[in-house]
Nucleic acid binder design. Sequence first.
DNA 1: TCAGTGACCAGAC
DNA 2: CGTCTGGCCACTG
Length: 116
Amino acid sequence: MDFYKRLALVGGMIPEGKVVSYGRLALLCGCPHNARQVGYALKTDRAGSFPAHRVVNSSGILSGAAAFETMDVQRLLLEKESVEVIDRKVDLEKYEWHPSLEDAIWLREQFRERDI
DNA sequence: TCAGTGACCAGAC
DNA sequence: CGTCTGGCCACTG
């Protein structure tokens, strides 16, 4: 299974009220150095439907830029899920998603498949 | 084939 | 806090 399909799969299991960093997503997809490709994938909509507002950088800072229609959309979406956004940033200690062992095992099985 | 480009990252100031 | 650097790598023209 290629990187973007993996990404779609992993993104689909980010729970409400949690966030992940680009780098961690890449890691969870089995491609530790592909953090930039995660951003690229979201920008170009290669990962299918994806809760892009739950993705922040490794410092917890919201992507800003032209990520969403207006600068505040990501913050509003997160706050709607009860994620505190303080000064354009979230507390990763509090809100970063760490997949359960079962999740990790399930993902590994899915990755083994050639197609989906 | 090749240089330029990122919704990134870690580390150094 | 902020800015810069080198590293990273798929994609694009």
